[in-house]
Design a binder for these strands. Structure first.
Lengths: 122, 122
DNA sequence: CCGCATCCTTTAGGATACTG
DNA sequence: CAGTATCCTAAAGGATGCGG
């Protein structure tokens, strides 16, 4: 399988941080894992309406490689795989707090549509 | 000219904020304009080593449309165009602070290469 | 000086089918 | 259940040339 396009040399911290979070569902994955502490693959899938299996797997693999997510495989039948945040994943999520608040303000300002109104805190 | 792929309905604040910042040079543009208050097109170009004219123009137009950047054209010969941050642009930059700090830590952790070592504060 | 237009390559993301 | 593998489209980004 082709490797992730690889994280290049960075111009600044924002650059390095954005590289790790950009990806259509990564912010949500971070949020889901932060809220529930531990989540299985299928639970994450249900929590991210519209995500494809391929993208979910791909994002999780990249986030694991970036040291944000811990992946634990339980050798059972049927298989059970649990995902959780590492310490770096948690601190990243904290660092995203102000940005999320700014985004909420932006949505409010221009009355953009929001898909999932159940998640009001971010 | 084709319009920007348009900012869709958002899932959360992070989503809405990332939509506005993702773009290879937008973080840097924000930083440059915040540091210098006002910058001409050619000055920005020099401040972003490697950017193409096309991308710089495109990013600036999108950021203008997103209400982050103010564009002021002076009717002179040769022409002079000055860019600066709007209030929203400044608050966004503030919200990016913690993320930038996290990114700096990440770079330090894994000893990634950094292109421009002159800009140490972000 | 500050662009816009055009063409091209690369990457992200989605659809679908199959497997241990 | 938790994935792979393959194919495909679309969006981002880059190179180059022209113009007020």
């Amino acid at each position: 399988m082709a490797k992730a396009p690889r994280r290049g040399p960075y111009i600044c911290g924002i650059d390095a941080a954005l590289d790790v979070v950009s990806g259509k569902w990564k912010g949500l994955i971070l949020w889901e894992l932060d809220a529930h502490r531990v989540r299985r693959f299928s639970e994450l899938r249900r929590g991210l309406p519209g995500v494809s299996e391929k993208m979910l797997t791909q994002h999780l693999r990249e986030m694991e490689e970036d040291g944000l997510v811990h992946r634990e495989v339980h050798a059972e039948v049927p298989p059970r795989v649990e995902y959780s945040l590492t310490e770096h994943g948690r601190t990243l999520n904290q660092a995203l707090g102000p940005l999320g608040a700014w985004g909420v303000e932006r949505i409010r300002r221009e009355g953009s549509e929001v898909v999932d109104t159940a998640k009001t805190s971010h």
